[in-house]
């Protein structure tokens, strides 16, 4: 197990699974989103306000992850997009069958604008020593998902804290997997 954890920890700070969005940020999707929550912020509906306040139209900041959830179908697409792949890699490599996300933070930088082509990458930030919680025994990890625009500017960073674990009874058997 110590070899596995050393191997996993060697990935801390390494950018993985870089991916560029299938298509540019769409303004009509901004309106779909605003309509779904009845968000009347004039930044998204009134071009004069957007010009004055944000130097032109922007997308709602919390839509960041939307731009990497693809449309339901696209011609010729074969691979299934797997968000937060690093999380699932960790579960598999550390032999931890269950996992929960305990925390999700998003930090916003440059505004995202219609027409932007965004790129994302996943970076493992830390993996804890083994800990036992009421869920079971396992490890906490922090994964950052960075988003940049076509000019290489950071538009946002999402940070997820996950806890991968074996349930109480499995942990008590003491069988390292």
């Amino acid at each position: 197990m110590s070899a596995v954890i050393d191997e996993v920890r060697s990935l801390v700070g390494v950018a993985q699974y870089e991916e560029t969005g299938e298509f540019p940020v769409e303004r009509s999707y901004v309106w779909t989103m605003c309509a779904s929550v009845e968000n009347g912020n004039p930044l998204f509906w009134d071009d004069a306000v957007a010009t004055e306040v944000t130097d032109g139209p922007i997308a709602p900041p919390t839509m960041l992850s939307v731009w990497f959830r693809p449309h339901h179908w696209a011609p010729g697409r074969s691979e299934q997009h797997l968000p937060l792949k690093v999380h699932f890699d960790l579960k598999e490599r550390l032999g931890l069958p269950e996992a929960v996300m305990t925390d999700n933070t998003i930090v916003f930088f440059e505004p995202v604008r219609p027409g932007d082509v965004l790129t994302t990458r996943q970076i493992l930030r830390s993996v804890s020593d083994e800990k036992t919680t009421k869920l079971g025994t396992g490890r906490f990890w922090v994964i950052d998902v960075e988003y940049t625009n076509q000019d290489g500017e950071t538009v946002g960073v999402e940070s997820y804290t996950g806890f991968g674990y074996r349930r109480g009874a499995d942990a008590a058997s003491g069988s390292p997997s």
Partner: peptide, 14 residues
């Protein structure tokens, strides 16, 4: 979850 995020954003910017 992502739509709840959008509700929170709308609430704050209202």
């Amino acid at each position: 979850t992502p739509n709840q995020a959008a509700w929170f954003e709308r609430y704050i910017t209202d």
